[in-house]
């Protein structure tokens, strides 16, 4: 799993670009915001679905306690890469991952790492809100319960309350904690899912187009929430909305056809992209 894939010539060319930009961006970040050490570091990550290669040699550093946005046209591999970070791709039989991904300096594809424990540290929020058909309380308590963080009782009540509070949902649901989570509105459900992810106290939260099923008001709430969460968590968000990327993220990565093209400060990428393809995508010329 840790061998680098160098069979694809076009992949190699792309990699060079990506590598250069990656290093540049990293240097720039380090210069301007010294307190943001690297949280996740990926090197030469390639992903295959059976015979088909979906990601080519992606190398990127993701800083701690910031929001990193993945942008790029549909099918370019954003979700695929995101799912590498918490090893959700392991649940897809035909999917294989090559390369190295480290979180806090530890290789997460090391055979000694248990993906189940890894996923407790790296939470995930999906495109469509997917609360379990259980009560709001049990939705939040599910993670802490399976990880033995807290038994039922006041300790659990506290976790549920703080998680809901951090997700900005507490005031809306505090009187109906034992009603089903599926009975909430779409935006509330998505914040419930965020609260559910927070409840296991992760370091990293991955969000795959978390607002694409929400209306503008619910979207604004979730964006506000993401902005607050970045003080505690490292957040990676996939989005199709340039405005959203600009509003919530500090750094952005642009993917194209399975290659990482450019990584930079979000402001800089949007005003002054280095690669022509990034420019075209941002200005809406394709994708």
């Amino acid at each position: 799993m840790t061998t680098l894939d160098t069979t694809e010539p076009s992949g190699m060319i792309m990699t060079k670009t990506a590598d250069n930009t990656g290093t540049l961006a990293k240097a720039a970040t380090a210069a301007r915001a010294g307190e943001h050490e690297t949280k996740i570091s990926a090197a030469g990550v390639s992903v295959f679905y059976g015979e088909k290669q979906a990601l080519f040699d992606v190398t990127i550093d993701i800083p701690a306690r910031q929001v990193m946005a993945f942008i790029g046209p549909s099918g370019c591999g954003k979700s695929t890469f995101l799912r590498c970070i918490n090893r959700m791709n392991d649940t897809i039989d035909i999917c294989s991952v090559k390369g190295r991904i480290e979180i806090d300096g530890a290789d997460i594809y090391d055979p000694k790492i248990d993906p189940v424990l890894l996923r407790a540290r790296v939470g995930m929020v999906f495109q469509k809100p997917n609360p379990f058909p259980k009560s709001i309380y049990d939705n939040i308590a599910y993670g802490p319960r399976i990880h033995g963080v807290a038994k039922a009782g006041s300790a659990m009540d506290e976790i549920v309350e703080t998680s809901l509070q951090r997700a900005g949902l507490w005031n809306e649901v505090k009187d109906r904690l034992h009603e089903p989570g599926t009975g909430l509105s779409g935006g509330q459900q998505q914040r419930l899912c965020i609260a559910r992810a927070i409840a296991v106290n992760p370091d990293v939260i991955l969000m795959d187009e978390p607002c694409s099923a929400l209306d503008p008001i619910a979207t604004a709430k979730v964006e506000e929430l993401i902005d607050e969460l970045r003080t505690r968590y490292t957040i990676v968000i996939v989005t199709h909305s340039m405005q959203q990327a600009a509003r919530v993220s500090q750094k952005a990565a642009f993917f194209h056809l399975g290659n990482l093209i450019e990584v930079d400060e979000t402001d800089r990428m949007f005003t002054n992209p280095t690669d022509q393809r990034t420019q075209d995508y941002i200005t809406g010329r394709f994708g």
Partner: peptide, 26 residues
Amino acid sequence: PQSMRDGAYALGATKAETIRQVLLPA
């Protein structure tokens, strides 16, 4: 729906936990 399984796995549930606590109740 697959999203229920994904949700449970993403929280760090094992396969058996997912089946017992999420799939079977649903």
